[in-house]
Design a protein around this nucleic acid. Structure first.
Lengths: 132, 132
DNA sequence: CAATGAACATGTTGTTCATAA
DNA sequence: TTATGAACAACATGTTCATTG
């Protein structure tokens, strides 16, 4: 019980400095999966595109690890399917979607992440005020 | 030449995600040293106090490493002195202050850090917009 | 005990490799 | 080549230890 609580806090806050990349990606992936059931590589391309103005290019490995974590936490579930026309294309991809209980869990995660995001924005804005 | 440029960019941006803690601390330490010549442990206490509302507690080891880096980069210089009354107190502390060329270098560093801070704030605000 | 700094250990992220279709 | 995932390497940060006065 206590361990679960602690690990969750750790997951979000880390060491008290800024948000870890993994948490950041998990938040985005929840939103993207909710919007459209897709597969790992697709989400990476989408995210790189979204963050082009910021020069942030999440690696494929981080995307996969994030999706795997969300699956292990019972928020997302996987389903393997063929991408295009099954007659010409045989590549089996791993699509992600919410589990039944996933929505509730995701809602909680989002809520906690909002607090974290606000905290981080606050810290960075403070840094601008303090140093400029 | 190229190596210097590269290492500086790396120093600031890291991997394209958020600002590394070390860079964040170095920026603050430049400001604190400029305000008052002090020693490592003092700066740690000061920073922990400043960030109390955000729950961020930089470790002593990170403070020292940051100060050492700023010294190696020729921005700060060290001077050993006794803290209180030399008759009763013999603890030798390491105080930091700017070198002659340090001000110019610091100005450049700050300038680059401002860009980085704005980028990070932008990314986090985008995350709020995109996910909430 | 306060202060410094190095050594060591862990955590986090990135790169490379193996496999499959 | 696209896609997945594991193994491995590198980097960033935190904890512990030694030393000094």
């Amino acid at each position: 019980m206590i361990l679960v609580e602690d690990s969750k806090k750790e997951n979000l806050k880390g060491r008290g400095y800024l948000l870890r990349q993994r948490s950041f990606l998990k938040l985005y992936l929840l939103t993207l999966v909710e919007k459209k059931k897709e597969y790992g590589l697709h989400y990476q391309k989408e995210l790189i595109d979204m963050f082009k103005p910021y020069g942030y290019k999440p690696t494929l490995s981080e995307i996969y690890k994030s999706l795997h974590e969300l699956s292990q936490e019972g928020i997302l579930k996987r389903s393997k399917k063929i991408k295009g026309d099954p007659k010409t294309d045989f590549q089996e991809l791993v699509y992600y979607q919410f589990t039944e209980s996933g929505y509730e869990k995701a809602k909680l995660y989002r809520k906690q992440m909002k607090v974290e995001l606000d905290r981080c924005i606050g810290m960075l804005q403070k840094a601008v005020q303090d140093n400029y």
